[in-house]
Design a protein around this nucleic acid. Structure first.
Lengths: 251, 251
DNA sequence: CGCACCTTTGAATGAGATCAAAGATGGTGG
DNA sequence: CCACCATCTTTGATCTCATTCAAAGGTGCG
């Protein structure tokens, strides 16, 4: 993949941003300099834990992760599943201690970068700083969607909503061949993300399958049959397209 | 209020940011130029509605507002209550259509500013751009806290959590004299914010009052008696302090 | 004063949780 | 290659927290 004559593969952040804006070559170079090294995390391992002091931020290169908190009563809330291109650890930009734990759901590869380099990026490439803000805003809107889903919809709609979200995001990454997506999540994880118990998630998945909305092949994949119906059921809004028309000029 | 020899009163954004960082005089001036005019909204009136095309962003000067969505089944989820200093309409930086409705809970005064001026701010004062990102991140973390509260805690803990959040924020604004705070919300609004029915909110408030955690005076005010207990009950974390140590140099 | 809206309380109902136990599945080491 | 064990899925029965429905007080505004 190329833009402005530079190899986007050199920078995952560049790859992610160029999904929304056309990067100048100076910007590509700056993004490549920003990034440091690849880190590999095994399935189940923790990238950083709640109340730890993370030292760096990350971009997901491959794999699935999630961020979660564990409450006093022992139950866990998963805030979000993270896929390729997502930025992790942004909370480090506002708080010294991580408010949540980031865990690898599957084996995953992350690219690290530092707060300080990001600060330099804001100075040298204002447009990229503004774009980081736009992406964070989009993330916040997605979180608000989840809040509405969990706060005000039925168990079935909550599961539908999560499936729609993952399906849409995977498709935009080119990972949803013909309605079939990987779903490397346990029902317990789906429950922790939707505020339900694993048992009830099971019943809702069954109900969706019985109604012909999805097909489960039992190997960590599902096929979305009735996307329209699923989205309508879940009151799902696609938030993958970002309006970058207001950004300042590229340098 | 003064910083760097310039009147902070001229800019609400400057007032808000100077709660976390020391602004240079050039930054104060830039923030003052950014802002446009005051808008007054009557109690109950809508600042912008879901799926509208808002033309500007706002900073809250005074009053309470909330942002909410209405779902297909007619129920409403309130995402957040907005107080003095909060920025509204950031979603305009990522999406052309507003994902939520912003409504004035009490009479309120807002100061407007445009996306384009904000873009200029990123170019001229990178540190302020970075600070906008930090504030947005903090906002997102607060939203994640709400998600955990609604997804994984009891009705009573959800109400406690909301009260802790409002109490802490009002106190940091100097609006919580001796544990007493204004609470200009109907129980229906509290329910829509916590994912409960108004009837059940009533019971939970009563339960909190019976246990001596709060005292209700019935005139839109409550007194927090046992802040420690309330926060512990709710697993509440204070997110008002922001770590701005990573920001680039001021100009 | 009267009306609209909000709060409060009770009783019945229901969605989802909890408890329990039987299948599936898959990874590991022999 | 197979046996074993841990983990995950599935299903049933029961329980509970919050909702729903209903109706009686309050409160404040025009």
């Amino acid at each position: 993949m190329r833009a402005g004559g530079f190899d986007l593969g050199a920078s995952c952040l560049a790859e992610q941003l160029s999904r929304h804006i056309r990067l100048s070559s100076a910007e590509c170079q700056a993004l490549a300099r920003l990034e440091e090294e690849d880190r590999i995390y095994r399935r189940g391992s923790v990238v950083f834990a709640e109340n730890e002091k993370p030292r760096e931020l990350y971009v997901v290169r491959s794999g699935w992760l999630h961020s979660s908190v564990v409450l006093g009563n022992g139950s866990r809330q998963i805030m979000r599943f993270h896929l390729a291109g997502d930025v992790l650890g942004l909370s480090l930009l506002a708080f010294p201690l991580a408010p949540k734990t980031v865990t690898a759901v599957t084996d995953a590869v992350l690219r690290s970068f530092s707060r300080q380099r990001l600060a330099e990026l804001f100075v040298e490439h204002p447009r990229l700083g503004a774009m980081m803000l736009a992406l964070t805003v989009a993330d916040r809107v997605a979180l608000a969607d989840r809040l509405a889903s969990i706060g005000r919809t039925s168990a079935r709609a909550r599961v539908s909503s999560l499936l729609c979200d993952l399906f849409t995001r995977l498709r935009s990454l080119g990972l949803a061949g013909g309605g079939e997506i990987p779903l490397p999540l346990t029902q317990e994880e789906i429950g922790d993300a939707t505020g339900l118990t694993a048992v009830h998630v099971n019943r809702m998945m069954r109900s969706l399958a019985d109604d012909g909305m999805i097909v489960r092949n039992g190997h960590g994949n599902i096929r979305i049959i009735d996307e329209k119906g699923l989205c309508a059921d879940a009151a799902y809004s696609d938030r993958t397209l970002i309006d970058a028309s207001w950004l300042p000029e590229a340098r």
